[in-house]
Amino acid sequence: MRRLLWPLAILAALILLNVAFSPGFLSIQMREGHLYGSLIDILRFGAPLILVSLGMTLVIATGGIDLSVGSVVAISGALACLQLSQDASVLTSVVLALGLSVLLGAWNGFLVAGIGIQPIIATLILMVAGRGLAQLITDGQIITVNSPAYKLIGGGYLLTIPFGILLVLVVLGVTAFLTRRLALGMLIESVGGNAEASRLAGIRARGIIVMVYAFAALCAGVAGLMISSNVSSADGNNAGLWIELDAILAVVIGGTSLAGGRFSLGGTVVGALIIQTLTTTIYSVGVPPETTLLFKALVVAAVCLIQSPSFREKVFRRRGTPAGPRPAAEEKVRVTA
C-alpha cells in the first residue's frame, strides 16, 4: 500500500484540479438506466489502456518490454470488423481476432525466449510489421460495422455500468488471482530477477516468458475489440497508435521496475487512470491542441520525479540537517591524506 501512496496522491490532485475547473466533475447521474458522469467516462475510455497496461506489467516483470501492443490493438479490431462486414457472427469474429492476437504474442515470446533476441528488438519487428498487417486487412480503408452485439463490448452497458469497465474488472480479478493467490506471480518475479538462477532452480523460464507475451497480446487484442466496437469501425493506421508508450508509463508510474522483478497490478491500474485523467484534465483546462503532447510529457516527467525517493531526498531535504556520520572507509581515507 505504501508503494501506491504517491500515485494515489497524484490521481487525487488531478481530480481536484478538474473539480476546480468544473464543479460538477464528481457528479454521477442516471440517464435511461445508465450511469453517466466524468468519472464514469474516465473509467470507460481508460479501460483499453488499463488492459494493455496489465499485460505490459507482467512482461516488464520478466525484464522484457513489448512495443508491439499498439499494432496488436489495430490488428485485432481490423480482423474483427472485417469478419463482421463479411456477415460472420460476433462470436466467430471475436474468437478469430483474439486467437490471432495470442499467436502474435507467442511469436514475440518465441523470439525473446527461444532465439534470444532482445525484447525491444523482437517486439519492434511486430510493431512495424503489425501496423502494415492491420492496413493490409482493412485494405487501407476504414471498415465500418453495424452490430449492436459487437457495440456492447466497448460502447454498451450492462447493469447500468459500461460493459468495458466490467470487462476490465474481470480481467484484473483473474490476473490478480493467478499471480497473487497462486505461485505464478512468484515465478514471474523470479524470472525477472534472475532468469539464469531461475532456470537452475528448475523453473521453466522460457515457457513463462512466452506465456506473458501471449497474455500481453491477448489483453491488447481485447483492447482492440473495445476501441473498434466503441466507434463501430476499424482504422488500421490510427487504432492503438502510441498506446504502448502510455502503457509503459502507466506501469512505471505504478511502481513496477523496468529492470524486472517485483510488480504491482494495483499500481498499474492507478497509473493508467492517472494518464487517462490527465488527458481529461488537458481538455478541461483548455490546453492548446498543439501543445497537448508537450504538456502531457512535462506532467508525466514531474510525476516520475516526485515518486523517486532519491529525488525527494535531494529536493525536499531540510537545510542544516546533519549529513550523518561518515562511512568508516571514507574517514580512513581522510585521516590518511
Rank of each mutant, 00 (worst) to 15 (best):
A113C: 06
L136H: 08
V72P: 00
L111F: 06
V73C: 10
V112Q: 08
L111E: 11
G156P: 01
V168K: 02
T123K: 08
V90I: 15
I115A: 15
N108Q: 03
S93L: 14
A122F: 05
L79Y: 08
L111I: 15
G164L: 05
V145S: 03
G155F: 06
T175G: 07
L178A: 12
L96P: 03
D87Q: 10
G116E: 13
G140Y: 13
V174S: 08
M56T: 10
V145Q: 02
A97I: 07
L152K: 03
R131N: 06
I153H: 04
L82T: 06
V112F: 01
L124K: 15
F110I: 15
S147Q: 06
V174I: 11
G132F: 14
L126N: 00
P162H: 03
I161T: 02
L111R: 14
T57L: 10
G55M: 05
S85M: 13
G63H: 08
V145D: 09
R181F: 04
I125N: 05
I60H: 06
L91K: 09
I117P: 11
L133H: 06
A78W: 08
L84A: 10
G64V: 11
Q118K: 13
P119G: 00
V112Y: 07
L91I: 01
L167W: 03
G114F: 08
C81W: 13
I60D: 10
K151Q: 11
G105T: 05
T144F: 05
A176F: 03
L152G: 00
S53M: 13
N108G: 03
F110N: 04
I75R: 11
T144Y: 03
L167A: 09
G164N: 04
G99I: 11
A78N: 09
I165S: 01
S68R: 00
T144C: 07
L104Q: 08
I125K: 12
L54G: 09
L103V: 07
N146R: 07
A80I: 03
G155P: 00
L82V: 10
L84V: 15
T144E: 06
A176S: 13
L103G: 06
Y150G: 02
A97M: 05
A78K: 06
V171Q: 00
G116C: 07
G77H: 10
L152P: 01
I143M: 02
A97N: 05
F110L: 12
I115E: 10
I75M: 15
T138I: 12
L133Y: 01
I75H: 14
V59T: 06
I137W: 10
V174Y: 04
V174D: 05
V102W: 14
V168Q: 05
G114Q: 15
V72N: 09
G155M: 08
T138E: 04
Y150W: 04
L84S: 12
T144A: 09
S147A: 07
S93R: 08
A106F: 14
S76I: 09
Q83N: 14
V59P: 11
G132S: 10
M56P: 11
W107P: 02
V90S: 13
I153C: 04
T179F: 11
S101D: 12
G140T: 15
A129G: 10
V59A: 03
L136R: 08
